[in-house]
């Protein structure tokens, strides 16, 4: 395997996230440092309550760490305004959630257009880009279906198309197969692998070792602490 030039897309340095419950403070993220390169396909694995979602929220700029430094695509995220964070979410990150998080009253294509609306893109350009994203995930014939006319696997594909539509440098998936049966899970994982082959950087969160096995790199989180498990194996 040829060594390509590795530019870090994500760099976390000594990240802490503290929560206070019933007067007691504990670290949901405990001194987490992590580097993710462009083109990586990384799985974060850990049991329930270990801090996976907390880490994903920090990575996705939905939440701010209590301390530590976070660089995304060369830019330090700390202390940015709400507005600036919204712009980063809009342009740098595509989210894929366990429960899809589609807007139930909007057609597939309208759901996929959402991130582009907040980018201020013209409506014809938006349509075109959303359509291409849906075609890419194999739903070119379901543009005008609303979510409840689609199967779970199809809904997750719409969500993936929505994450892809804005062509962000990072795809963040929180248990993307958690709500799907095993066959559909394989399809969705296959799609994510294809997307990674095409050069998309993917960070995936899971508690399922079979899912993690399909990633190029696996890190384990336990009680908020991160340990490297496997790099570029197989």
């Amino acid at each position: 395997m040829s060594k390509r030039e590795q530019t870090p897309l994500i760099r976390l340095e000594n990240i802490y996230k503290k929560y206070t419950l019933a007067g007691e403070t504990f670290n949901a993220l405990d001194n987490v440092s992590l580097t993710v390169n462009k083109g990586d396909f990384m799985a974060i694995i850990g049991p329930s309550g270990s801090g996976k979602s907390t880490l994903m929220n920090v990575l996705g700029c939905l939440d701010q760490p209590s301390s530590g430094k976070y660089f995304l695509d060369g830019e330090e995220v700390e202390e940015l305004s709400e507005n600036k964070l919204a712009v980063i979410r809009n342009t740098k990150i595509g989210f894929i959630f366990q429960s899809f998080h589609l807007l139930p009253k909007l057609k597939a294509i309208d759901n996929v257009e959402l991130p582009l609306i907040y980018r201020g893109m013209s409506s014809s350009e938006r349509r075109q880009q959303a359509k291409e994203a849906l075609e890419k995930v194999g739903l070119g014939d379901k543009l005008h279906h609303v979510p409840n006319q689609l199967s779970g696997g199809q809904q997750q594909r719409v969500a993936i198309a929505r994450a892809l539509a804005g062509i962000p440098p990072l795809l963040l998936a929180d248990e993307p197969t958690g709500a799907l049966d095993s066959k559909t899970s394989r399809d969705v994982m296959g799609l994510l692998q294809d997307l990674n082959e095409e050069g998309n950087t993917i960070v995936l969160i899971t508690h399922d070792p079979n899912v993690a096995a399909q990633a190029k790199r696996v890190v384990r989180i336990q009680d908020g602490k991160l340990t490297e498990e496997r790099v570029e194996a197989s």
Partner: peptide, 16 residues
């Protein structure tokens, strides 16, 4: 609330 959360995760600003 969930719709608002989704929109924000997709890049909606407060003013949007």
């Amino acid at each position: 609330t969930k719709e608002i959360g989704i929109r924000k995760s997709l890049g909606a600003k407060q003013r949007d």
